[in-house]
């Protein structure tokens, strides 16, 4: 189907005919071709072609080798730790993120805005810096590690340490997705619920929470996705004992340092496929909540 054709006289006086192709709507603004060309070339060269190289490398290993890599005990242990610790930390972040967002939006106390700004620290602080700081705090002779040592609780150099690091880096996601929804939530509905005789608990569970659930889920998935691939903040506190506290991204680095490109690519590809599934899940949550509530 051919779009409408418009012709007009440009500044230089020559007649220009603009035929809108079927895949884009006509516009008098210039620069569509140039800006799209820059975007697509950069995207292809920097992101898409290199990612395609990864899939190609993984596929070139052959089915038998791929299966052997996937089912090897070390790969399985690393993937289980990465996904398990990410899940646990995302759940913890969902709970505390909701509480922090609630406190920041609903309560007024001195230092609130400072606290609000500080929530973004994990986004701004380089992961290696967070990693060595957490390792030093939770080491057996560290500030918190020394407190836990008498109870025989070891955090640093165990899977628990991995979770601590993942809680740190995932913290802002839930707060920052739930906070705007809470801010926009209409007090009218709560008042109506209260006037109609609902108790506070009932108002929270039947009126407030249902509106937050999509945002909470989105934040949870974002925190989970980030935690699965996290490297810098984890490796210092994890201790990196194979089969015990070795995360999947570290296994990729180790395989690369052994020049086992196929091994690295296969593990990376599994992680990528899961990440892509998670993006689809987020998009699903958002369109579902748009359909249900009329906003994100």
């Amino acid at each position: 189907m051919a779009g409408p054709s418009i012709s007009f006289t440009s500044r230089r006086g020559d007649c220009v005919a603009v035929t809108a192709s079927s895949w884009r709507q006509p516009s008098i603004l210039p620069g569509f071709g140039l800006s799209l060309a820059i975007t697509i070339s950069a995207l292809s060269l920097i992101v898409l072609i290199p990612l395609a190289a990864l899939f190609l490398k993984a596929a070139s290993a052959g089915p038998a080798d791929i299966w052997a890599i996937i089912t090897s005990a070390r790969t399985q242990a690393a993937l289980r730790l990465s996904f398990g610790a990410a899940l646990f930390s995302a759940i913890l972040n969902a709970i505390f993120g909701l509480i922090i967002a609630w406190v920041l939006v609903r309560y007024r106390f001195p230092g609130r805005r400072l606290l609000d700004a500080a929530v973004d620290l994990p986004f701004a602080l380089p992961t290696a810096v967070a990693g060595i700081a957490l390792a030093s705090i939770y080491a057996p002779n560290g500030w918190i590690g020394a407190l836990l040592a008498p109870y025989n609780i070891k955090v640093a150099y165990t899977p628990l340490g991995v979770m601590v690091a993942l809680v740190f880096i995932g913290l802002p996601f839930v707060v920052r997705t739930v906070q705007p929804v809470l801010e926009e939530a209409d007090a009218d509905i709560e008042e109506a619920a209260a006037l109609l005789g609902a108790s506070r608990l009932r108002t929270i569970f039947r009126v407030i929470l249902p509106g937050i659930v999509p945002a909470l889920l989105t934040g949870f998935v974002l925190a989970f996705a980030r935690a699965v691939g996290e490297y810098g903040s984890v490796i210092f506190i994890a201790g990196n004992v194979p089969m015990f506290s070795e995360i999947a991204p570290l296994l990729i680095v180790i395989r690369l340092e052994q020049f086992d490109y196929a091994g690295a690519s296969v593990v990376a590809t599994i992680m990528l496929i899961v990440s892509f599934a998670l993006i689809l899940a987020i998009n699903g949550i958002q369109s579902w909540s748009r359909g249900r509530l009329g906003h994100v």
Binding site: T39, P50, L54, K57, G229, Y231, I252, L256
Partner: peptide
């Protein structure tokens, strides 16, 4: 689709972001 592709690096593990260039 273009927007999703631009956002892609956010959901890729940093280690994989380096790995792809080593493979190339």
């Amino acid at each position: 689709l273009l927007i999703s592709f631009i956002d892609l690096p956010f959901s890729v593990s940093p280690v994989i972001s380096g790995l792809v260039y080593v493979l190339l």
